[in-house]
Design a protein around this nucleic acid. Structure first.
Lengths: 141, 141
DNA sequence: GTGAAACTTGACTATTTTAGTCAGGTATAT
DNA sequence: ATATACCTGACTAAAATAGTCAAGTTTCAC
């Protein structure tokens, strides 16, 4: 199981963004340079973050992005959800070979994968952007 | 993040195998039919499981595989390790653009990914094959 | 001893996902 | 005006995934 770059970059970029005052917009160009992430790719990512109201955009010169909510209220789960970084442990669909549809008939290990999914998602639900910024500030002392 | 079929199948197949007495070998053909997994693919998987001494093979007619250790002593982490199902949250290598090498200079979110990795691996280290078989037996009552 | 069952191995391949790139836009501060 | 920066959709190279295929070898049952 691996985390995709899209998900990782989204979090990295938002942590970078959250370090600022949240009044003056931060341009993607700056984030791109600081974090070493392609500008074009960042634009794709922020387009999704904006649609899910995690960030707010300010167009034009001196424009950029600011957080749309308090860092405390943005959980990792919200970020991953926005960029379609899903935790998937099963493939089981309605019509499976072995009749595992997740409801009436379950495959031998279905509960295990459900548990695993919850376990990972719990982690994402607990961590907020604020936690990450704080954590980072502490380590720099 | 998604679990690969290889990892999922490895666990499914071993749970299936572990349900038996562990004396008479179970053929991959049977597992293949019961679990709906391609025989050729299973052979690849079991070849790795054998090399890591998780299963033992018995060749010839009436042959098959049996567990090489007690189900209690086979953890998910051993299984995933055997089939190269790794939990990877970072790409950071020795020479990274932003100088994140995981040691001297760390990227803004490096600790987060380390934490996530541990969180997931903990789950895999706790669960044993025995747990899974028992869990399954209970639910069938 | 011979045939079938089942393990063994390595190479090959189609499909899907990932990780971007590219080319055009539009809005706005100066 | 014009440069900066957001916005959008289409496209693509590379990697990973999920197998398949072919050609063995071993051993049991008869």
């Amino acid at each position: 199981m691996r985390l995709t770059s899209k998900g990782r970059y989204a979090v990295m970029a938002l942590v970078d963004l959250a370090r600022f005052d949240n009044i003056t917009p931060v341009s993607l160009r700056d984030i791109s340079l600081r974090q070493g992430i392609s500008l074009d790719f960042l634009e794709q990512i922020f387009s999704k973050l904006r649609k899910k109201e995690i960030v707010q955009s300010i167009r034009g010169t001196q424009g950029g992005y600011i957080l749309n909510r308090k860092a405390k209220e943005i959980k990792l789960t919200n970020i991953f959800d926005a960029v379609d970084e899903k935790v998937k442990t099963v493939q089981c669909k309605k019509e499976s070979k072995k009749g595992c549809n997740g409801k009436t008939t379950k495959c031998l290990t279905h509960n295990l994968w459900d548990e695993l999914e919850s376990h990972i998602n719990n982690f994402f639900e607990e961590k907020s952007l604020e936690d990450l910024v704080k954590d980072n500030a502490e380590r720099r002392v």
